[in-house]
Amino acid sequence: MEINDVKHIGLLARLKLSDAEASALTIDLNKIVALVETLPATRRSSDDDEEEKNEEEDVVEESNERITRGDETRQDFRITSDELIAASPDHNGRFIRVKKIIDKDA
């Protein structure tokens, strides 16, 4: 990964990086990528017992299901819009103020 790659990823991630910061992060990220590159391509052993294999696959399926299930819409959690608006760093009455969305001069 080069410094320009890191700056580009920074923009994708909505992070404006200075040259010095991007340079330091490039070194760090290359070390981290080298670490995660040690992960081997995973293969199941063909010697595994079929019944055990199915049982273990069920465990995995259950594990995935408990993380990725769909959300249900709930009506019993109430937080007022006033409270939400008050948490914003810049608001005016019932509105959250933001900078202009499109820069006409850009």
Binding site: M1, V6, I9, G10, L11, L12, A13, R14, L15, K16, L17, E21, L25, D28, L29, I32, V33, V98, K99, K100, I101, I102, D103, D105, A106
Partner: peptide
């Protein structure tokens, strides 16, 4: 530029620490 994207970029750059930025960048990658 000078629109809301600039605000996002500067806010996050200033607000997050180095380790958070490392992980956000790695995750985005």
């Amino acid at each position: 530029g000078s629109d809301v994207i600039e605000s996002y970029l500067l806010t996050r750059e200033d607000g997050f620490g180095a380790e958070v930025k490392r992980r956000i960048l790695l995750g985005t990658f």
